[in-house]
Amino acid sequence: MTYRWDFTPLLDNWQALAMGAVGTLRLFAVCLVLGLGFGLVVALARRSRWRVARWVSIGFIEFFRNTPVLVQILWFYFALPMLVPVEITPFTAAILGISLNSAAYSAEIYRAGIQSIEPGQWEAARAIGMSGLQTLRRIVLPQALRRVLPALTNRGIEIFKMTTLASVVAYIELLHQGRLIASLNFNPLEVYSVIGALFFLFLYPLVRATYALERRLARSD
């Protein structure tokens, strides 16, 4: 006797799933911008002239890379409200955990990109009278960013996958909604297969595009 797959409860609940998808996309967009943006700040702080800035940046990167992101999310959700007198919503906790974690990872990506630019370019820019900041903005960063674009895209894909962790603090995203549907209709097999398939269909084209981008950049370098 084989199991009879039945997708009708999922189709009937498409609105709940759509709501979850909106939640996933919203969390992803915020964490992508904050994570990759703040990562650049951390990377620049790491090469700062001030020792304190360098230390803080290194400490931040090491701590957030060497602890699990789920622990970070739960820390922000359950522990942080003890320290600060503000309410932390599941959305805020997920944003803090995922963005700071991604910032630590992307800071290392930016650093590798900036270091890959030959020192001669810095010297040449300074020789024609550019300030350090100008050199960074006009000469180094445009080239560095181009080189690390595939790595940043991969980070973006990781962020998208990480958004499912927000379901643990009951933020309404795809997996959270799936869980709800599964517990009401006793159809976990169909629900988690469909959710897995949705993520795969959305992310796999991006994965392929990143491969193609990598090959193109490798050729043009």
Partner: peptide, 23 residues
């Protein structure tokens, strides 16, 4: 390889824990 690298690990875990026993 592609499916397990591209889908979120938490979805995989739920699939194995809640879904697989049904099959």
């Amino acid at each position: 390889i592609e499916v397990f690298r591209t889908t979120p690990p938490l979805v995989q875990l739920f699939w194995f824990y809640f879904g697989l026993p049904i099959i």
